[in-house]
Design a protein around this nucleic acid. Sequence first.
DNA 1: CGAGTGTATTATGCTTCTTAATACACTTAG
DNA 2: CTAAGTGTATTAAGAAGCATAATACACTCG
Lengths: 123, 123
Amino acid sequence: MIVLDYRDKRPIYEQVVEKLERLIVSGALEPDSKMPSVRSLGMELSVNPNTIQRAYTQLEQEGYLYAVSGRGNFVAPESEWREGKKRKVLTEWEEVTKNAKEAGLSYEELADALKEAFGKEQS
Amino acid sequence: MIVLDYRDKRPIYEQVVEKLERLIVSGALEPDSKMPSVRSLGMELSVNPNTIQRAYTQLEQEGYLYAVSGRGNFVAPESEWREGKKRKVLTEWEEVTKNAKEAGLSYEELADALKEAFGKEQS
DNA sequence: CGAGTGTATTATGCTTCTTAATACACTTAG
DNA sequence: CTAAGTGTATTAAGAAGCATAATACACTCG
């Protein structure tokens, strides 16, 4: 399902959150589909179930999962997280863009990079 | 010179690095100008000199400062860090842009936000 | 010479992350 | 009904990183 990067200095639970969030946002994990149990995903990643539990709890607080006692964790419907995610990522994008400007990157350079990222043809 | 944010959960030395780098890149601290000594900046921020030393060492490794034994730390000439900084921040920008696209933000939305960030007039 | 500088070392306390071992209530397949 | 699998909670322990404190030493400059 996911692969951990041991060179990454961040906590494991944070990596798990990031990677699962990515799978959900990209649509690789469909709404209402069942997530692996904390025990099975812990086994698969050679990580303690508590660590997975911590990741799931955070994903639940952020609206990406919902838990059903005795049954498991499930991907939340898109309406629960899509708008919040867009707002969050746009704020981050504006911040990084500000840094880029400050570092000396020009409007034209970024405009070109933006076209590139969206597969637009260069003039 | 700088102000620490105690709500920020990152290590102090990392905050110091980020804020000083910002001052250098923006030009607020001119090349070859003298930085505060590790002891004086430690006093000013109510932080241990070792913590400042750690920040200075990292800034030196990244090319923003150079140290002269017995005299102090100084801002490195722009040629030492400008290009590296631009490359680094562009890579980060491309990554965040990819995330924004994946989260559902359109080319038009980002193009508008880019114009906004550079103070361009909207058509 | 003395004050101020960078730099290094050692020790200590604190917080966070992670593992481990349980425990309990719930749901579902058999 | 029973057993297995689920989420969830608790407690204990170890490891690592962060920060402070107290020194120490070589250097530069007034």
